[in-house]
Structure formats: structure tokens, C-alpha cells
Amino acid sequence: MEHFKNPSNMGEMKDPDVTSKVGNPACGDVMRIYLKVGKRDGEKYIKDIKFKTFGCASAIATSSVTTEMAMGKTLEEAESIEEKEISEELGGLPKIKMHCSSLSANGLHEAIYQYKKKEGLDISEDLKKKHKIAQKTLERTKEMRRKHGLDEE
């Protein structure tokens, strides 16, 4: 609850190295992650991370926890943060809200993917797969909007 009332790392970042956008407003969740990447002992790490989320209480809380977990980690370490760990960190989520922790994990992975792509770094097969899933959700939303002619609203 504290992560919902007073979320950490909330807000926009000035001059981020990369920004990601994931989610599906049809389900009521959209999340953006802003990353600044630094170098330490020859390894790239997350120097700063911020988020913005349109979503329910759990979505906001998981966003907050995810950024706390990722802060200071190397890119490889952050890449391997999974939704299960996020929900455990929060003390568990009801089954019905598990998609919130998966949204936050997606947001983080997508940001790392975008960064690696931009910098021409090696991207693992696993990360590629995660990126594809995130893209599909966004496209499905756009398609749905077109179908219902909702862009005028």
C-alpha cells in the first residue's frame, strides 16, 4: 500500500538514455520507463530509473517496486528480474492482479531492449521474445481503436 500512496522513482526523467512504453489501455494499464545507463567496472548498469503509469493501485505499486529493484543493477541483472520476484517483493499479489507485475517487468525489459538496440549491443533471444510480446500488445490496442473508430474521442 505504501508503494501506491507514495511511489518511488515516479515521474518523468530529463534527458533519459532511453524510454519504453508498454501496456494496453483497453485493460486499463499503460506504463513508461525512463532509463539512464552508466558504466561501472566495465559493466553497464542502471544509474537512474523513473516511471509513469496509468493504471490501478497494483499497477502503480508494482511500477514503484520494479524501479527500486532495478536501480543500480547491471543491465544483465535487471533483464532477469521476473514478474514473480516483483510480486514477491510486494508481499504477493492476488492472482487477478498478476498482470500488473507482468506489465512492470515488461516495461523494464522493453527499456533495456531499446537501449541495447540503440547502442548496438548484443540482444539475447529471451529479450527479443519479450520485446515482441510487448509490441504485439500495443499494436493490438491501436487496431482495436481503429476498429471502433475511437480516435476521434
Binding site: 511511489p7 515521474g11 501496456g23 513508461r32 496509468f54 502503480i60
Partner: peptide
Amino acid sequence: RSITALDKKGKI
């Protein structure tokens, strides 16, 4: 609204 990922028009 300071947290939201949507823009002013409520769009993605």
C-alpha cells in the same frame, strides 16, 4: 496525473 503515462488528451 503526475504519475500517469497518458498524455493530456488521455491518449497513449
